[in-house]
């Protein structure tokens, strides 16, 4: 069963077609890199797959749920890291994740191990998020995604603002999630890293996903964004 199955999907932001005629099929345990220029629609596509946006037309099924009817069910099963971190500035790191854990019906005791996985040191855990650096916030937000153990990971520039160690941790986390059967869609401009991570890539241009090929053969790169040799 496809984890993501979009057919001719159109998403409007106001009256503006942010995504139009999107066809995308993603199977379980795939790590799909979304590449494309700024404003191409990568972030919108991730938010759409997270159930945060309604399809205007076309068909959109994520994790077996139709995005026209069952977006709350989709939202409960995905983990989304967006450009913003969706954290409360005046709560501590631990309080933020405990809130998320309780709301998601996860044992609050699991917060510690999620923070461990992202290398968030013990001394930072009682600090209010508003005092953290951008990179530290990013790590905490990623810990929030990992905490939920989602079936579908949707990561928008997960390496942005992270130091070398943080980037390695993200890569490890994504690889581990896919090994456990989760599916990952990642939008990144850090192509060197993302290509090492991805099992497949697709291009998003002008709100449309170009036809992609499975398994790394015949990869589409209409913008020539990467000069790398395919593995």
């Amino acid at each position: 069963m496809s984890i993501v199955a979009l057919r001719d999907a159109v998403v409007l932001l106001g009256r503006f077609p942010a995504l139009s005629g999107v066809d995308l099929e993603v199977d379980a345990a795939e790590i799909v890199l979304l590449q494309g220029p700024n404003g191409a629609g990568k972030s919108t596509l991730l938010r759409f797959c997270a159930g945060l946006l309604r399809p205007h037309s076309g068909s959109a099924v994520v994790l077996g749920h139709d995005l026209r009817e069952s977006r709350p069910a989709v939202r409960r099963s995905v983990g989304l890291l967006g450009h913003d971190t969706a954290l409360y500035d005046d709560l501590t790191v631990t309080e933020n994740l405990q809130f998320l854990a309780r709301a998601s019906r996860i044992e609050p005791e699991e917060v510690g191990s999620a923070l461990d996985r992202l290398g968030v040191s013990a001394r930072l855990r009682d600090v209010v998020v508003g005092r953290l650096s951008a990179g530290q916030r990013r790590r905490v937000a990623l810990a929030g995604v990992a905490l939920r153990r989602p079936e579908l990971w949707l990561l928008d520039e997960p390496h942005a603002g992270l130091d070398q160690g943080g980037r390695d941790l993200v890569d490890g986390l994504v690889a581990e999630a896919a090994a456990d059967g989760a599916t990952v869609l990642v939008a990144s401009h850090d192509l060197d890293r993302a290509l090492d991570l991805a099992t497949r890539r697709v291009s998003v241009v002008g709100g449309t996903v170009t036809p992609d090929a499975v398994g790394g053969a015949g990869i589409v790169d209409p913008l020539g964004l990467s000069s790398r040799q395919e593995r």
Partner: peptide, 13 residues
Amino acid sequence: ADGARRALLLAGI
């Protein structure tokens, strides 16, 4: 602020 409302939506409350 900082897209926090998204966390509420995704948490499924």
